[in-house]
Design a protein around this nucleic acid. Structure first.
Lengths: 175, 175
DNA sequence: CAAGTATTGTTGAGCACTCAAACAAGTATC
DNA sequence: GATACTTGTTTGAGTGCTCAACAATACTTG
């Protein structure tokens, strides 16, 4: 991609990256496993259900739902189709935009979510929060925030990060 | 799973969890995307290649490789099969244990890895390390360490975490 | 308003991962 | 030296994800 020699990772960075990688992988696969085993729900679907459950009237436009649950449209479309098969979600035509579809969480779906939640929360607590000090929780939140917002405002492309930070207000720390 | 009412997440924990989730998801999918786009290698395969490249004689027993790359044996077997198709890895019979197979990184595979590495490292740097202060890198490493080691020494099962921490030395912080 | 363009959402093919089952070679037991 | 147990690895079916192509509707602009 960037043709020239990259800035390789330092020892510490290497270690941090690899540890982070295994930590995240094991954490997510543990969580996924619990959910799958005890409730037969993939974590991605769980997220969709949660977002719907929190939306007014338990319904959202597909595209909003996609954004909220960090899915691609394609993925969401497939996912909702499966959830519809289970009777957990229904698709309705959008009244204001004839292209649109609205996904709505059914009562059955809500019940399924309610049933799945306690086990899931317990798993997250045991695998994550029970392992961290309160300070670390705060740190993790800040770090995650930084990573996530960087992904939204991607760097100007081209060089590693020139002096070209056009007057964007937040997030673009200090180039 | 744990029948009784779970300890729900606090506001802060909720937020931390969700932010972490999106951060990790976007980060990994960005990294995956770069690798896939620029080098046609899934990140999981990249990890396998890296581990092999670092091993003596660029070869490892399947099971060791599985552990090193945090794959299940099944996954690794499939993955190595694909890598073999590309000519990047070869399977050899293990001399000392006739059950065993040894995966070895070929020269072609090594070259492919060399070609992919700079872009990958650049992506990791831009998406992760450029966004974090040095302190945060340290914090992230510690947090990841805590999460990962918790997964290795899973809690005694049953209650949330009783007083039953048998005299294990490290990792089992303070129940 | 006609023509072009952008958005919304679906579809199908192809790949990777998971789980459970099968196998095959080594080890222990009787 | 046959029995069962364990370990190392593969296999196949099933599921979710990604990517590219498509269809339908909405917006924009000369």
């Amino acid at each position: 991609m960037t043709g020239s020699d990259p800035r390789w990772l330092s020892e510490d960075e290497q270690r941090a990256w690899r540890t982070f990688l295994t930590a995240a992988q094991t954490l997510f696969s543990t969580v996924e496993g619990q959910l799958q085993r005890d409730s037969g729900i993939p974590h991605g679907y769980y997220e969709i259900l949660v977002r719907l459950s929190e939306a007014p009237d338990r319904s959202l436009r597909m595209s909003q739902l996609a954004e909220a649950s960090a899915s691609s449209k394609s993925r969401l479309s497939h996912a909702v189709a499966r959830l519809e098969d289970r009777g957990w979600v229904e698709r309705l035509d959008c009244p204001t935009d004839r292209r649109g579809q609205v996904a709505r969480l059914t009562d059955v779906g809500y019940t399924a979510l309610e049933a799945a939640a306690p086990g899931h929360v317990t798993q997250v607590r045991e695998s994550l929060f029970d392992q961290l000090s309160p300070d670390q929780v705060t740190q993790l939140a800040a770090i995650s925030e930084a990573i996530a917002s960087a992904a939204e405002n991607p760097a100007p492309a081209g060089l590693g990060c020139p002096l070209a930070c056009s007057g964007d207000d937040e997030d673009v720390a200090d180039c």
